[in-house]
Write a protein that binds this DNA or RNA. Sequence first.
RNA 1: GGGAGAGUGUCCCGAGCGGCAAAGGGGGCGGACUGUAAAUCCGCUGGCUUACGCCUUCGUAGGUUCGAGUCCUACCUCUCCCA
Length: 418
Amino acid sequence: MSTYRSDFLAILAERGFIHQVSEPDALDARAKSETITAYIGFDCTAPSLHVGSLLPIMMLYWLQQTGHRPIVLMGGGTTRVGDPSGKDESRRMLSDEAIDRNLKGIRAIFSRFLKFEGEGGNAVMANNADWLNRLNYIDFLRDIGRHFSVNRMLSFDAVKLRLERQQELSFLEFNYMVLQAYDFVELHRRYGCILQMGGSDQWGNIVNGIDLGRRMLNAQLFALTSPLITTSSGAKMGKTAAGAVWLNADLVSPYDYWQYWRNTEDGDVVRFLKLFTVLPLSEIARLSALKGAEINEAKKMLATEATALVHGRAAAEAAAETARRTFEEGTLAETLPTVEIARADLERGLGVLVAFAEKAGLVASNSEARRQIRSGGLRVNDRTVADEKMILTAHDLTAAGVIKLSLGRKRHVLLKPV
RNA sequence: GGGAGAGUGUCCCGAGCGGCAAAGGGGGCGGACUGUAAAUCCGCUGGCUUACGCCUUCGUAGGUUCGAGUCCUACCUCUCCCA
């Protein structure tokens, strides 16, 4: 790949964010000579963003850090339609209320990464519902629809895949790319936005927007996509047994978030340090020289830095300290996730099954707890539970006044009587 | 409108002569080994139950049977062929 002269593209390139760029030289020149405005769209399909969305967020972060203007586009309108890209099946239709609720949850995350207008920054938060919701169908067809060739739309991967696999693609979803293209044009009109970024699966959609911009406004627009990030062993990022790794603290605690990064595979550490932390590359180069068990130092760095970005420095260091005491010293850290239980329950005697399943929520059901006991996976105060009929009482309280329940080596919950 | 086929364990894929809690994968979880890694090996992977066992599951609703994922009828959804 050519070397970029603008700070923005140079940084994205050396940190591994770039998969494809349209007209890289022209974009580089503009990013070098002027302040450019770029956007990324975010779906409102869930109440929070998860780790998978972190990559685009980081691209906006670097955009602003290198002197440009980021636009976060909330898909309040497009989420009502549903993007067929990369999906085998139609998505379930979300109610407008659900979308609205999700939108609010997602919004909060961005203030960690970007400085918005009114907060001493220049970032813009937009919502495509503002223009999509009031479109008039016939007008839209005449103004926008005439620029689209169905022949060409059928050739895009997102559509082709569905057709080839003989899976249904509704007319509703078929229109998604038209709406997304229109978003780009609308953002160009409103904010002078010239660049849309996104994951590699968005390339087709973005290019549609570029075409539309040229036809309607004779504008030169650009596309930049990031690679699909998978772990070295091929798994998609952001999924664990417990579900997605959400960015909101009420869905995934800072401690669990820290743990997620701490458990990164060896082969991914350097790549992730570049993508998901803002550590200087020189520092990352130093960490990448570590070998064998020393790589754990790099993983801790990754975990703490990545957590600090999302949850703040203090929460990140608290999580690191909790982990250090739990894993390295083997002592009890009172800052482990804690569940309060009624003191009366304890005096009456609390069955282990209930304690693990209902109270701590470490396992999904009593049956699951039984199975785990049979395979030696449950521990109370670091002693393996051998008997599923075991009863917890006040005698099991440690000096710190809690009972430590563990599932496997890594997952711990403290029961605290109140 | 006519004809043919498909829908299986609510993570996915996928077998299933009328006796099935239902083969086999993948994924996930636990154990061993390690470095809170990877790879490898072993176990588990519907719910309730101390247990005998009970309950809920194969697109939906009925029916035939001692007994139905398996047979019949209707309906729903998706494919394909003809019009």
